[in-house]
């Protein structure tokens, strides 16, 4: 009898694992879409801040300052509850993508700006000394180096977005964390579902952080950033 009970429990357990795992697609859609959109916005903004005319530079600076002051939950609430009032009701997933894109674009902008400015003055001088024009120096020396300098931070940024996507729970996006909490509420046991989602996040974030560190070390070896 006891044996049968535990069998039933096990079947139940696997059903719940399945429910949580099936929502991993939503987590990926949410985090990858917001991350890529944020990258596009941030690249644009960082180019403006480094090379643009004065008033636009100021505008970008204020954008970053303001957006970096807003907690992600608040951004999600504003897009989810606020937009309908202006006649743009959006499903939770889209609100979450917009919210994360907005907040993360400010962080990525700082990352890209830092990378462009991180290319040493000496490298730029050397580029001019062999007769490269401003544009060509940017294209062949600054950009390739800035790109490499930005990679470790950019990979880390994805881990951050992935983990932050769990906050979309606030507006009911059914990604893995939300699904885990739902399961926990049904089976009245938080421990196992939470450990399971932790494991899922870890399996993605740890390799990413490992790769990011490898890139970072390579940059130091190549003398492109200080140790």
């Amino acid at each position: 009898m006891n044996n049968v009970m535990s069998w039933i429990k096990d079947i139940q357990f696997f059903t719940y694992v399945n429910i949580i795992l099936s929502s991993i697609t939503t987590t990926f859609i949410l985090s990858i879409a917001s991350f890529i959109l944020a990258t596009i916005v941030a690249l644009l903004l960082s180019f403006i801040e480094v090379f643009g005319p004065r008033p636009l530079v100021k505008a970008v600076e204020w954008y970053v300052k303001i957006v970096r002051g807003i907690p992600l939950i608040l951004a999600l609430f504003i897009f989810y509850y606020g937009l309908p009032r202006f006649g743009f009701p959006l499903p939770p997933l889209y609100s979450a993508i917009i919210g994360i894109t907005l907040v993360d674009s400010a962080y990525q902008e700082q990352l890209f700006k830092g990378a462009i400015e991180g290319v040493s003055e000496k490298q730029i001088e050397a580029a001019y000394a062999i007769g490269l024009t401003k544009w060509k120096a940017f294209r062949h020396v600054i950009l390739p180096q800035a790109f490499r300098i930005a990679i470790p931070g950019w990979i880390n940024e994805f881990s951050i977005v992935l983990k932050d996507s769990s906050i979309a729970y606030a507006i009911g996006v059914t990604e893995i964390f939300t699904q885990a909490v739902h399961v926990a509420q049904v089976i009245a046991d938080y421990l196992k579902p939470l450990l399971l989602v932790s494991l899922i996040y870890l399996c993605i974030c740890y390799p990413l952080s490992y790769i990011s560190n490898r890139f970072h070390r390579r940059l130091i070896e190549m003398g492109m950033i200080g140790s």
């Binding site: 000496k122 490298q123 001088e125 050397a126 580029a127 001019y128 000394a129 062999i130 007769g131 490269l132 024009t133 401003k134 060509k136 020396v141 390739p144 180096q145 490499r148 190549m222 003398g223 492109m224």
Partner: peptide
């Protein structure tokens, strides 16, 4: 067109300034 001029003048720096990438 300073870059055209610079391409006719070689410059060797104290700290080499090779392109690290």
């Amino acid at each position: 067109d300073v870059h055209n001029i610079r391409s006719q003048i070689g410059f060797v720096f104290q700290h080499f300034n090779l392109f690290n990438h």
